[in-house]
Every structure is written in structure tokens, then in C-alpha cells.
Computed example of a mutant assay.
Amino acid sequence: MATRLVQVNVKARDEVALGQFWADALGWGTSSEGPGVINVEPPGLDWPDPRALFVDVVRVPDPETVRYRVHLDLATSSAEHHAALVARLVGLGAAPVDIGQGDVPWTVLADPEGNVFCVLEPRDLYADTGPVAAVVVDCDDPRALARFWAGASGWTVHEVDDEHASLRSPAGVGPYLELLRAPTGDSRRWHNRVHLDVKPEADDDQDAEVARLLALGAVRADVGQGDDVSWAVLADPEGNELCVLSPG
């Protein structure tokens, strides 16, 4: 039995506009599986694929103002690429933001709906990840959360200490999942606007996989999904929502 980390889910007021922003930002295309959902997809890859975490932009009622616990880091290959990418993203509708980062070599931006993300300075570690270097999750205990996400994602733990954990597909391709120790305060009361989706293999049983993740420390979560959806909504041991999709 196994689940695979397959996509990043982003809530939006205007899924078409935000989906197009992220498609343009990443150099990807878009499709739609139905009203209210825009799929942002790398060219030439069929979902799911370990070389990329796809992005689903989903329309919801006006999301709460929250402290974001999950964000994307974008990769760059040179100082010139970094400067050009930041300028292009601002031209697409992103805006520089100050989240208390101080004097750092990366650039912090917010997308047109206020979701914070980072454009990293060139780093050898991310030279082969594609445009998304990492999905970063703020947490209290990287060691403990790495154990959960290794079981939930099927990914391999590359580094772990008291401040940071890093996981990547066992195929050694695509972006990283990074768990960063950071104060979380009262943000546990709120739903995330960005969360991760995992998917069982085609011959696995969704209910059995949900039970396995519950045994690893997840809990069931209600984000208003109702009883007629094909996915199960859980929260990891630190309260970050995740969805267990139908097998495939």
C-alpha cells in the first residue's frame, strides 16, 4: 500500500485568473476538469509524474485572511535569471512583500490573490528540479513531520534535523518537500489556502490508505467538502490539511 504526493492545491476567488498567473509564472499550460477548477500542468508530462508537482487552482468562497503555512519556492539558474524572473512575475501581477525576511538573497513575492512565494537565488541543489524548487511547510517539529510525510508522500528523507527536513521523490527528480521549523502561533485555527494532495496507486484501496495515514498521525478534517466528494480530507499531525484522492 502507498500514496504518492501528486499536486499542490491552491484555493482562489478567481481560479481562471490565478491559474493563468501560475501557468505563465511556471511556463506551463492549463486545462480544466470541471467548473471551478484550473489544472496547471507541465508540458509533455501526464499527471501524475514524479518530475513535477502539478498545481490545481480551485475556486472557493472568499478565503479568510490567514498566516500562510505552505508556499512555493521557485528555482533560478543565475543572478540574471533571478532578476529577470522577478521582473516578469511582477509584470504578471505579483507584488513584493515584507514578511519579516530581512536582508536575504531570495525575493519574497505574493501572487495576485496574496499567496506568498519565494524566488530563490541560484542554488546547486535545485539545478534539476524544474521551475518549482520546493514546496515549503512551516512546522513546529520537522523531525516528527518528516516521518509522517515520508509515509504519506512515498518520498525519501534527504536531510533532517531540529530546524529543517527535506524530502524528494525516490526517483531523484522533481521538486523537494521542505519542512521548516517556524513559529506557528494561532494559525492552527484556520484552514490553509494551499495544501498538498496524495493519491493511492491504481490497485490500492482509498479507505485502506486513509486508515494507514490515520495510523501515522493524521486526523479527519472538515473543510466544508460535504459527503459527495471522491476524496478524503485529512490533516497531518500539525494540522495542515491534505486530500487523499481516488486511486489511479
Rank of each mutant, 00 (worst) to 15 (best):
E241V: 13
A23D: 03
D197S: 10
P247R: 12
R189H: 07
L145H: 10
A79W: 11
L179D: 01
L120Q: 07
L125N: 01
L92G: 03
A144D: 09
A134M: 00
T65P: 01
H71S: 11
W22C: 04
L45S: 05
P42V: 00
E33I: 11
G226F: 05
C243H: 11
M1A: 13
D227L: 11
D49F: 04
L109T: 09
W155L: 04
A150D: 01
E113P: 00
G91Y: 00
D24G: 05
D204S: 13
D124G: 07
A144T: 12
Q20P: 04
S187W: 09
G34M: 06
W231Y: 15
L109V: 04
L213S: 12
G239C: 12
S246Y: 13
L109F: 03
P42Q: 08
W149Q: 07
L85Y: 03
P105G: 00
A52W: 11
A110I: 07
A94C: 08
L92R: 09
V37I: 15
V229C: 06
V229Y: 10
V210R: 08
L242S: 06
H81M: 04
E80M: 06
W190Q: 09
S31T: 15
A171W: 03
V57T: 01
D222M: 09
Q20N: 13
S31A: 15
V137M: 12
P175Q: 07
G36L: 03
V210M: 06
S32C: 07
A127F: 05
A221F: 13
T156H: 11
H191Y: 06
V8Y: 07
N115K: 02
A221T: 03
N192C: 15
D197H: 07
Q206M: 08
V137E: 02
R193G: 06
D236N: 04
E178I: 12
L26P: 04
V135A: 10
D203K: 14
L180I: 03
D111A: 11
P142R: 13
P61Y: 02
E241M: 08
V173L: 09
A87G: 11
D111V: 08
V55E: 02
R51Y: 05
N115Q: 14
V104Q: 10
A152P: 06
A182S: 09
A146D: 06
L5I: 12
A134I: 06
W22S: 13
G185P: 00
V97H: 02
K199A: 02
E241C: 06
L18D: 08
S246W: 12
A134V: 02
A165H: 04
A17E: 14
D62L: 13
D140F: 02
D46I: 14
V6F: 14
A23Y: 03
R4N: 13
D141Q: 14
S187D: 09
C139Q: 12
S246P: 06
D228L: 15
R193I: 05
N192D: 15
L242P: 08
L214F: 14
R220F: 00
D203L: 12
R4F: 09
L216F: 14
E41V: 10
E209Q: 15
F54T: 07
G100P: 01
G226Y: 00
V116G: 06
A165L: 01
A208F: 10
S230E: 05
W22H: 13
S169E: 01
A133I: 05
V70D: 02
L180K: 06
P200G: 03
G114E: 01
P237T: 05
V55K: 00
V116T: 11
A79T: 14
R168K: 12
L18G: 14
W231Q: 02
R69V: 10
R220P: 00
S78I: 02
V104R: 10
